[in-house]
Amino acid sequence: MARPWPETLDFSSADKMLRVRFDDGHAFEIPFETLRVESPSAEVQGHGPGQKQVVTGKQGVGVKAAEPVGRYAVRILFDDGHDSGLFTWDYLYGLGESTR
């Protein structure tokens, strides 16, 4: 079975939300704050089980840019300087499901 593939990624600065639609019909709205505090970077997730860092104070975080990484992910550059997380399509899908 094929994994869901993103059809659109819309970063809305006005409401600080990523709207992403996948080819399986699912569409999600993921707040920028969620993207930042759940970043898949080692800085946030740690280097092993039980090392995840709690990130707070990101309610107003914005997105300055988003860059494709190959055909499997996007790197999000946040306005607080964080830019080391690679958000794979599977990871974004999972975040979207968890924010419903």
Rank of each mutant, 00 (worst) to 15 (best):
W5K: 10
W5R: 11
P6E: 07
E7T: 09
E7K: 12
T8Y: 09
L9H: 09
L9Y: 08
L9N: 06
L9G: 04
D10S: 15
D10E: 15
F11C: 00
F11N: 00
S13T: 08
A14Y: 11
A14W: 10
D15Q: 05
M17S: 12
M17Y: 03
M17E: 12
R19N: 11
R19H: 13
R19F: 09
F22R: 01
D23G: 05
D24W: 12
G25P: 01
A27G: 12
A27L: 06
F28M: 07
I30W: 13
I30M: 11
E33V: 04
E33R: 12
T34M: 11
T34Y: 14
L35C: 00
L35Q: 01
L35K: 02
R36K: 07
V37D: 04
E38T: 12
E38Y: 10
S39G: 05
S39W: 02
P40I: 15
S41R: 09
S41C: 14
S41N: 10
E43C: 11
E43R: 14
E43Q: 14
V44M: 01
Q45G: 06
G46A: 00
G46E: 01
G46N: 03
H47I: 02
G48A: 01
G48E: 01
G50Q: 02
Q51E: 15
Q51V: 03
Q53I: 14
Q53W: 15
T56S: 11
T56R: 11
T56A: 09
G57T: 08
K58H: 13
Q59V: 07
Q59K: 12
Q59W: 02
V61P: 14
V61R: 03
G62Q: 09
G62K: 09
V63H: 03
K64F: 00
A65H: 14
P68S: 07
V69N: 00
G70A: 04
G70L: 05
G70H: 06
R71Q: 13
Y72R: 02
A73D: 05
A73H: 11
R75F: 09
I76G: 05
L77W: 13
L77S: 12
L77Y: 15
F78Q: 08
D79R: 05
D79T: 05
D79I: 04
G81H: 15
G81W: 14
G81M: 14
H82S: 08
H82G: 06
H82A: 11
H82W: 07
D83I: 08
D83L: 08
D83G: 13
D83E: 13
S84P: 00
L86D: 06
F87H: 15
F87K: 07
T88W: 11
W89N: 03
D90H: 13
D90N: 13
Y91C: 04
L92K: 05
L95C: 08
G96P: 15
E97D: 14
S98Q: 15
